[in-house]
Amino acid sequence: MQSSLVVLVMSLLVFIGVNIVGNPVDMLINPEADQEEIDRVISDLGLDRPVHEQYGYFVFNALKGDLGKSFIYGEPALKLIVQHIPATLELAVAALLMAIVFGIPLGVYAGLKPDSKTAKTIMATSILGFSLPTFWVGIMMIMVFAVQLGVLPSTGRGDTVDVLGVPMSFLTLDGLSHLFLPALNLSLFKISLVIRLSRAGTREIVHMDYIKFARAKGLRQGRIVMVHLMKNIMIPVVTVLGLEFGGLVAFSTVTETVFAWPGMGKLIIDSIHNLDRPVVVAYLMIVVLLFVTINLVVDVLYSVLDPRVRLQDQKS
């Protein structure tokens, strides 16, 4: 319910942004078009009609999936975006996995042994991960690993393999080597976040009675950490990470630009530079939809993980 409201409001905002703040003729029509073309498009888009009708027209077209044609590529903007989605998703998912794979063990360790040197190093690094700008870290990575050491490539996706007709990098060794740096760069912030969350969670949960009871039951330390502790930590971590997935997609604009990763983040930046406005509008609508979907999925996941929430749902 609220989600559809958000989509509606965002469509209104984008519409206002394009039609009221800027001149829609400039925004939506190729500046090199002649007068006849301009007139034709104006009547096509209904720009000569009153504003509320225009908005209806915009929504109607958007629902049909028609968000205009790219000036640069001459293709429907939506199609262009959709073509670039897999690369971005691959990058974002890889970053998400890295955040879990690196973040949770480091965070749990720091939570279990808060006074150890290793824990303090982990926490200091995570503070850096929070405050360093992503693009600068990306540049440094390129300088160290690609330029100075020459061990990892700095741009592009490398060899790809088609999965269901969609090119993917993670299935080839070359593709993986291209994926590693951008994914790490993108996930650095999230790794720090997961470290903090799981450390805080661990420190809170190890003092819970049920952990002590688990020890009193004679369970092995491994089982206590992996089952009793982990399952409780996973709830906040998964919730936050899920919500942050949209952030990963948004921040991929930066990482993709630094590493020349051909996803929709790079596409939007290029489109902004090229004043390719239909693509920009299409991107915005897609991203808003993505965010709304993510919020829904996280709600569902949350209830799967936490039996207490599940029960409340049954009652209501």
Partner: peptide, 21 residues
């Protein structure tokens, strides 16, 4: 030995069982 030969019961039953298992 713990939980096998010597077992323990805690004070607050609301806190001794892991809520997510």
């Amino acid at each position: 030995l713990r939980g096998n030969r010597v077992a323990m019961i805690f004070q607050d039953p609301m806190m001794t069982l892991n809520p997510v298992l």
